[in-house]
């Protein structure tokens, strides 16, 4: 079972159908999905899922960055994790990286810089972010745009972060993650 974590500023927000449902519609083709708001996710239950996907949020919503303590399970888990946009930023915050302003909105050219099972080569991706993370020490960069790192992976664990939105364009990336 896959857990999709709603990263929006509150449970049942108007943004749920924009940022969480599109992920579920791709992932549930392969495996049953459940969605939970991050405020309701506990360390104890994390181990019962096969994969965890952290959603994005609206451009103006950075509330999750005030709640980093609710995501510390990411450091300890052995479950595969994919953080999308806000999800990637929270992975960075959990692993003590800095967050800085960097805006990309709309289709952007992305280039793979390290071989990985999720994507390859050059592709165009949908972006909606005003901030980026500095790549944490334990992570390597998998892809980048002209402005910043677009995808990262933990050096030893299956923890991935993508800054772009694969639920909008390049949905096969979610399918590949689910199939890992």
């Amino acid at each position: 079972m896959i857990l999709v974590i709603d990263m929006n500023h509150k449970k049942n927000s108007l943004a749920f159908s924009e940022f969480v449902l599109p992920i579920i519609s791709v992932a549930e083709k392969t495996e049953v999905c459940v969605a939970k708001h991050y405020s309701e996710t506990t360390q104890k239950e994390i181990g019962k899922y096969s994969k965890i996907i952290l959603s994005g949020t609206t451009l103006k919503d950075n509330t999750y960055l005030d709640d980093v303590d609710k995501f510390m399970w990411i450091r300890k888990t052995d479950v595969h994790v994919l953080g999308i946009c806000a999800g990637m930023q929270i992975i960075g915050a959990v692993f003590d990286s800095g967050v800085r302003r960097c805006e990309e909105i709309g289709m952007t050219d992305v280039e793979t810089v390290k071989k990985n099972p999720l994507f390859s080569g050059k592709f165009s991706a949908y972006e909606l972010h005003s901030r980026v993370i500095d790549v944490p020490e334990d992570f390597c960069v998998l892809a980048k745009s002209k402005k910043c790192a677009q995808a990262i992976k933990h050096k030893r664990k299956d923890i991935y972060g993508v800054l772009f939105h694969p639920e909008v364009r390049n949905r096969e990336i979610i399918e590949r993650f689910v199939g890992l």
Partner: peptide, 24 residues
């Protein structure tokens, strides 16, 4: 994406939220 990007940019410039509840 054409429409969404443009409205997102306007909202960003005006520092307000942007919601697309039918997205995808």
């Amino acid at each position: 994406v054409y429409q969404a990007k443009r409205v997102q940019k306007i909202c960003n410039e005006l520092n307000i939220w942007c919601f697309n509840p039918l997205w995808m």
